[in-house]
Amino acid sequence: MTNQVQDLRDTIRKAITSQRSKIVTPLSSLLAVEDAIGYVPREAVEEVAKLTESTVNDVWGVASFYTNFRFTPPAEHTVEVCWGPSCHVLGAPSVLKAILGHLKLTTEGEAADGGITFKYNTCLGACAQAPVMSIDHHLVGRVKAEEALKWVRRLHEESGAGAVRHIGSHGRDEDA
């Protein structure tokens, strides 16, 4: 076993053994892994199976059921656009189209250069501010296609740790 794999397993074990909830299940453990490293690698399926005394197949059945799990490492940045009805009504399709076009994607996935993961979200929970998108889990409401593009472009250009902090510390209107 290489050290890298060993490290990954250690991180995973730590994530699944230090869950807050008293009840540890395959699902809760997978969510903990997703929170810790952003995706569910094969090793996580195995470790969760061991911890919860189930088989990898059972765990995989759970992981593949819920749409919030991903199985490859995410890109540095994650952009999500809500496509719930309220957002849809108020222009999410044009936001989606603009971002997909910019990232040269046809559906959700990683942009070619690997810097951005793009996802659809069924509801980000802020319907009143529709259309809503989320950039590295930071919500932006009442977003227009051009504005969304500006965010994505910035992420693209500033691919680096700084970009996240930048969004967290500035208001959207400031940038508009």
């Binding site: 929970g125 802020a126 009143a128 919500l139 932006v140 409401g141 009442r142 208001g171 959207r172």
Partner: peptide, 15 residues
């Protein structure tokens, strides 16, 4: 709340 956040409340709070 989420709706506030989506409208930029966190930035407002920080400011």
């Amino acid at each position: 709340a989420i709706c506030g956040q989506a409208a930029g409340a966190l930035e407002v709070l920080e400011a």
